[in-house]
Amino acid sequence: MSKVLGGISESKKNEPLLAPELLSQLERLELVSRKIFRGRMKGERRSKRKGQSVEFADFRNYVAGDDLRFIDWNMYARLDKLFLKLFMEEEDLHFYALIDGSSSMEFGDPNKFHYAKQLAAALGYIGLCRADRVKVELLDASPTSDAPVLRGKANLWRMLQYLEGLQSGNNCTLNEAMKSFALRNSGKGILVLITDLMDKSGYESALRYLVARNLDVYLIHVLSQPEIDPDINGDLRLLDCEDGDEAEISVSQRLIDRYRQTLATYIEQAREFCARRGIVYMMTSTERPVDRLVSRYLRQRGLVR
């Protein structure tokens, strides 16, 4: 019987995904996209598409077939030319929250998977409040997904219900999951990927799929405290919970230092990779409360305001 690094806390697992006091806090926030995307329905945010809002955007020459209702007749009277008056269109936003459901996410106290669900719920709720199209789903390599697309505050319970029902243990690679996601979803918008990045096949190609979809990608790298600062000693045989891989180590200060160095390098590499591709990267420990993460750190990164 092997021990488990960091242990699994059942009590923390049973905590509600969103505390009532957090809800009121989240209602004041909104998701911000650094890009203006074209939504499918009228939403509460300005669209790239010129539409029927009251806000003037531009003029353009009339071409045959244009809706005569938008011709600026005053301009015609003055200049004797037909111009169309263009207005800004207000649209909804696509918000995707992707949760890594691999076995490695089950570690830590609070456990990383639960933490990821809490975070997805919080961000999803912000989106629901602002009438964005919210889709929370588990990373999965299957070509179909049963994740509901939700809009409106009233769908909070559906979102939470769906999140509660999510189970970890789906050990597909990040690459496969991203590929599948990219194929399934064509809509542009904000994508928050919550993962521990513990994928031996690498994360780079996976993220490239997202970059190629021109999504506004946020990568939230969740690590538990025992992973950041391992509290182990002695001669150990480490067992990988996902693939059963073994690594024999004899713990020494040098090894621990080296591990920390490796982790720091890994994080730095990820940060750099993301920065180069316009992905916002953020590493967080499960010990950092979700409300603080959303209200302070993600606000700083520009995901919410």
Binding site: S2, E106, M198, D235, E246, A247
Partner: peptide, 23 residues
């Protein structure tokens, strides 16, 4: 021989393997 190594389950041996690679 290390006859008695304590087994320990970890989220991933990925970083550990990288760590002990040069060792």
């Amino acid at each position: 021989l290390k006859l008695r190594r304590t087994p320990l389950e970890v989220p991933s041996t990925y970083l550990w393997t990288k760590t002990i690679e040069d060792l």
